[in-house]
């Protein structure tokens, strides 16, 4: 049987079915029909609204190595206090709220969705759940205990900067040097330079592996030149903060810059 004949037959069947269905419909009282239509419309609206909500990026993701002070910053942003301190997180802290520093401001202020993703390396896959909705990423670095952790932090940052969801959407990134209230803390310029150097080295070793690694599909910087953060497709800035003393104005600025009130 050639295809056109087959098609004709299908068409016949379809029109027959349609007629049967219409016949059936005529027997159904109109109130039931309206109710059914209302339900269909309602569910589609519900689904669509959910999808739209998902797509909108107003999330700020706090990330960084374990012990750099993400949870403290999260609670500083939310409540303006660290309460009785924190321990290593096992789950992300997540909340939609008006920043504590802005609660006294007049006028309507839009709430921000902030997620604090645990830094423990076993929990890093969680990050991928939040990155697609991120309007900005804050990479928290421990400025006090920086040098021993420099390599691990740089590796994590490298992974972050080469993530598809970050590169494609050009998500702005803030390198936040935490714990600067302590005297021995390193400056943000120093940390920036060290991390650039470290990432430069990583580039050579990672590009060798990246062919095998599916996660690192993008390379960083310009080949042949020493790496700087300005070469990234997304905007990378540095700032200082102190979670314990509540000195987080630069962080709040960053958040407000990227999540418009």
């Amino acid at each position: 049987m050639d295809p056109i004949e087959q098609f004709e037959e299908w068409k016949e069947q379809a029109s027959h079915l349609w007629r049967v269905a219409m016949d059936h419909l005529r027997h159904v009282p109109p109130t039931q029909l309206y109710a059914a239509a209302a339900i269909v419309v309602f569910t589609t609206v519900l689904l669509l609204s959910r999808l739209l909500k998902r797509a909108k990026a107003n999330t700020i993701v706090l990330t960084g190595l374990s012990g750099s002070g993400k949870s403290v910053l999260f609670y500083q942003l939310r409540d303006g206090s660290t309460h009785q301190g924190t321990v290593t997180s096992m789950e992300p802290n997540e909340g939609t709220f008006v920043l504590h520093g802005e609660t006294t401001k007049k006028g309507k202020i839009k709430a921000v969705h902030i997620v604090d993703v645990p830094g423990h390396s076993r929990l890093r896959p969680k990050l991928d759940e939040y990155l697609p909705q991120a309007a900005g990423v804050v990479f928290v670095v421990d400025a006090l205990d920086f040098l021993p952790n420099c390599r691990a932090a740089s590796e994590y940052l490298y992974d972050l900067l080469t993530k598809g969801s970050v590169v494609k959407k050009k998500v702005p990134l803030l390198i936040l040097c935490n714990k600067t209230d302590k005297v021995t803390a390193h400056t943000k310029e120093f940390i920036r330079r060290q991390m650039e150097k470290e990432i430069d080295k990583l580039r050579t070793s990672r590009s060798a592996i990246s062919e095998a690694d599916i996660t690192n599909e993008f390379t960083l910087g310009v080949p042949g030149e020493p790496f700087t953060f300005t070469q990234c497709s997304n905007k990378v800035t540095t700032a200082e903060a102190s979670g314990l003393t509540g000195e987080i104005s630069q962080l709040e600025e960053f958040i407000r810059e990227h999540v418009k009130p």
Binding site: R122, R151, E155, K201, S205
Partner: peptide, 19 residues
């Protein structure tokens, strides 16, 4: 299982070799 099998430390040997 994913959590267990995800490496805790970097397994980038080439990086260590360069270091």
């Amino acid at each position: 299982l994913v959590r267990i099998l995800t490496p805790k430390r970097s397994i980038d040997i080439l990086r260590d070799v360069h270091a």
